[in-house]
Amino acid sequence: MELDPDAPTARKDGPRRRFDEISLALVFLTRLPGVRTDWSRPLMSAAWAFPVAGAVVGLVGGGVAALLATLGAPPLLAATLGVAAAVLFTGALHEDGLADTADGIGSGRDRARSLEILRDSRIGAYGVLALIVSSLARVTALAALLEAGAWTAALPAFVLAAALGRGAGPAVMAALPPARDDGVGAAAGRPAPAGVAVALVLPLLAGLLVGGWPALPLALAPLVWLGWLALRRLGGTTGDVVGAAILLTETTALALLAMAWGGAA
């Protein structure tokens, strides 16, 4: 059997390629300064690294909240500023997706008009309500976790929730067809099954190790509902739907962890 002459090069390139995929996920999903990436790669080639970027988001938001609570800030204030830090760190990318998806799906219009609404920069009543509910849920859940333990409950919970949320994004893109041929969602490509599996297993395994089971697997249940709505109303997924899936999963995971860990305080 002949050996592939490029095989040694490919093996040497492996760690470099993984590092590039992590940097691609970080640059797309956060506003972390000083990170360069190769935009010639399709975004979903970095699907497996999405929870890595999510964990960084959780470290920022959870770290701010934990630090403020340690310095004497009331839990609700510390949680509000922690969630705000995470939103600023991501550039409100997923909040924008959630609002647009809520407006598009909630409009009750036909598929073509619903897709137009998703691209409209203006926000409607459904979008406002979705943002209010998700923000309140995250803030109150994080406040409860701060009372259970700033560094032992709130910080790891935010890291796990943010990581799982980002892992849910590629899963939605793999499960649903693109709703249109252009846009961010179509340009990102379809993730490989192995990348989707890693993106979900990494945060779930981390949750198992720190006692977040079965709260984290349950946080994926609303994705079935969102996927059904997107397929029925839009014909598939878009970049906004992926953003909505990420934020919906993160919010649900944080709420479930607050009930599991905060109630045991």
Rank of each mutant, 00 (worst) to 15 (best):
D4G: 09
R11Y: 15
K12C: 12
G14P: 04
R16F: 13
R17Y: 09
R18L: 15
R18M: 15
D20V: 08
I22R: 06
S23A: 15
T30E: 10
L32F: 15
R36I: 11
P42G: 01
S45E: 11
W48Q: 06
F50T: 04
F50M: 09
A55V: 03
V57Q: 10
A69L: 03
T70S: 14
A79V: 05
V83P: 09
T90M: 12
E95Q: 15
D96Y: 04
A102E: 00
R109S: 13
D110E: 11
R111W: 04
L115G: 05
I117D: 01
D120G: 12
L129E: 01
L129H: 07
L129A: 14
S134R: 05
S134I: 13
A141G: 11
L146A: 01
A150E: 01
A153I: 06
F158P: 00
L160I: 09
A163S: 13
A175I: 09
P177C: 09
P178C: 06
A179V: 02
V184C: 01
A188I: 07
A188T: 08
G189C: 03
R190W: 04
A192D: 14
G195K: 07
V210S: 11
G211D: 09
G212M: 10
A215I: 05
W228S: 11
L229S: 05
L231I: 01
L231N: 10
G236V: 02
T238V: 08
V242E: 04
L248P: 02
M259A: 15
W261D: 00
G263I: 07
